[in-house]
Design a protein around this nucleic acid. Structure first.
Lengths: 175, 175
DNA sequence: GCGTAGGTAGAGGGATCACTCTACATCGTC
DNA sequence: GACGATGTAGAGTGATCCCTCTACCTACGC
């Protein structure tokens, strides 16, 4: 049996991703987590902690999805990354970044903001490393963010647009 | 006296922008709108309608802020637009796009999704028209979205990054 | 002077919610 | 076979929330 903590985190992540952060009640979250209310509160002592646990779990899954088993040739990596973002959106979330959504739902939480910053920084860092575009972390992050947001309205068109912007990035990288 | 409807919409917009969509109670919103509870419900018969009214108001203000009094020379317009986005974020919102935030807070609302789509489509359309980059609406939208999201973490660095990406866009636009 | 339109003030209902607590089940270990 | 750790089941509590409703006020046209 998978240990209880990750089972809870996985269930919470699914619930928040599917229904947003405002709507699901703690009892809904209990059902999604597949444990009793007492156990749920043992691992996540408040509803805010449930949000944090869900995002922490998603962070790990997102990094794996994007960066595992990338092609060796660095020129090919960028397109693959953008395609994987599109695939992630199609499978996991119909709308925007869950981390930004969590902060938007509760702008007063310092813990959420810190987690968001950490998540984005690590995505940008690993994207730059994987593509060889060191020093261009923020350019990469901007395209990735734009793709994530625009995908919900434009699907594959947004992916090809991100690829085009990414290629331009590599061109004037040499300059 | 400004008419009651816009006074309410302006107050609601400020309240949601400052405190998110989940936290403020209807009584908080009443205080922000500066009217009585009865009048508030007369113009916006449910809390969901209050969200819609606030976003409708912001839509108009955002378009004015971005597109009024742009320079005549189209080559200069793109940079001005990105700077205005940065200025908007600094003044109006510390975090992300309010429209995306509203959808994230209540993913089930069809009305919100429709409003989001309309808002983004009009921003992209007018940005393309103002810059002369017709046919590149989605590229422009992707940069604008990326800038809006990344600004909260990287401030001016995100603006200069958007400018760089925008210039690349113009270059291979000739190709 | 009076009616009407559009406003204020605020109490109250009915429902929901986050969270706690009691009582009981299961299982591996000595 | 007793025990401690870890789990389930679910009722109860106090607070909060959205929304309605009654009662009253003010400005203005005729």
């Amino acid at each position: 049996m998978t240990d209880t903590k990750t089972k809870i985190a996985a269930g919470l992540e699914q619930a928040f991703a599917a229904r947003g952060f405002a709507e699901p009640s703690v009892e809904d979250l209990r059902d999604a987590a597949g444990v009793s209310l007492r156990t749920l509160y043992k691992y996540t002592p408040s509803r805010a902690d449930m949000v944090l646990a869900a995002l922490e779990h998603r962070h790990g899954r997102y990094l794996s999805h994007l960066f595992n088993d990338l092609p060796k040739a660095q020129e090919a990596v960028l397109d693959v990354l953008f395609e994987r973002v599109g695939a992630w959106m199609a499978i996991e979330t119909s709308h925007g970044c869950l981390f930004h959504g969590a902060v938007a739902a509760d702008p007063g939480s310092e813990g959420l903001r810190a987690l968001l910053a950490r998540h984005k920084a690590e995505v940008a860092r690993r994207a730059a490393a994987a593509t060889g575009l060191d020093g261009r972390e923020i350019d990469l992050l901007l395209i990735l963010e734009g793709l994530t947001q625009a995908w919900s309205l434009h699907r594959d068109t947004a992916v090809t647009s991100a690829k085009r912007l990414g290629h331009g990035l590599r061109m004037n990288s040499a300059a």
